[in-house]
Amino acid sequence: MNVVGKVSKNTLYIFLDGELDEYNATHARSEADKLIDGHLACDRVILDLSGVRFMDSTGIGFLVGRYKRLKKYATPVFIQSPNLAADKILSMSGIYSLIPKL
């Protein structure tokens, strides 16, 4: 899984690309947290899921983990562009009440 960061207008975009499952979650966590910790001055973080081809409940755990980390810094976080399958899991888990979808 590729995790790429990009800053635009004081927003940190984290682009996730690949399959967000048990196999990839450890790497994704570590890379996303490096980006978060390296851009603490940003006003908000957007997790872009447009490149996520597959996601299961491990992905929900990953997203909640990043939400908790960013909450410590009082930085709002949003989800952007999940595919239909990911959106189905995210909707049923109620995660959008914590991390709104843009």
Partner: peptide
């Protein structure tokens, strides 16, 4: 402590 969502069985059922 491991960022588990606890949703695995719920997803299978649904």
């Amino acid at each position: 402590d491991e960022e588990r969502s606890g949703m695995g069985f719920t997803i299978m059922q649904t």
